[in-house]
Amino acid sequence: MSQGTAVPQSGPRLKLKGVGKYFDHDHKKLAVLEGIDLEVEAGEFCCLVGPSGCGKSTLLNIVAGLEKPDEGLVWANPREVSGPGPDRVVIFQDLALFPWLDVWDNVDFGLKNLGLPAGERRARVLKYLQLVHLQEFLHARLHQLSGGMRQRVALARSLAMEPEILLMDEPFSALDPHTRERLQQELQDIWAATGATILFVTHGLKEAVALGDKVVLLTTRPGRIQAVERVDLPRPRSVDDAPVLSISRRLKAQIGNWVDPVSRQEERV
């Protein structure tokens, strides 16, 4: 168990109050996000799901401190968020691994920023690369790895920093269905092993239900929270489990027809 990720704390690990974000479009104020209130408890796996363009990635970036909200406040661990910090590490959709570094140095990158001693860094790099089953590829170059393996490197790189909150922005959407499902399983194992708090953005309803303790449904333009669903099914779960499917179906009927063409395609897969 890692120290950083599992320190229990009173109150939610992440709290958003009245968060709104607007863009200027032809001199008109266009609401991307409006009145977002959200709490994520320590160790909770929270999925944000909504159609493309509903602002879910913007919301994640606001939590990461990469974008500033126009309204409302964000607290994390338990300070007010004013910028990016290593307590809230992001796994981006296109991974953002550094091709000029090998697997080991990619994972070591954040640890060097933390200023950890060499021995501790070494131990952590090894531990997390083993956790994602990459112990055979410690010094491989990224171009030698498959998409799923690169995803594992990105996971190890973020986990190794032992952040209070792990922010994941549609991390599996570029993978083939088989690899995606394997990584969904592995992510649940890793989450169970580390006790990390996860905010996971996806446009796949089934993926959200399969992974999340809590599924937050967003509407589009403006992005508002439409419903919050607690999922208490036993783990590990898969997107093909009957209970997962039935909850997904019920939610889909409940929220109506926001599902955009892209995710409708994915739902069929």
């Binding site: 910090g85 953002a96 954040g110």
Partner: peptide, 22 residues
């Protein structure tokens, strides 16, 4: 690509270090 810089910033990298390392 901005995503590399964003990733580095969320991992606590900034300033001159961001220039030389990323």
């Amino acid at each position: 690509p901005p995503v590399w810089i964003r990733a580095a910033r969320t991992m606590g990298c900034s300033g001159a270090r961001l220039y030389f390392k990323v």
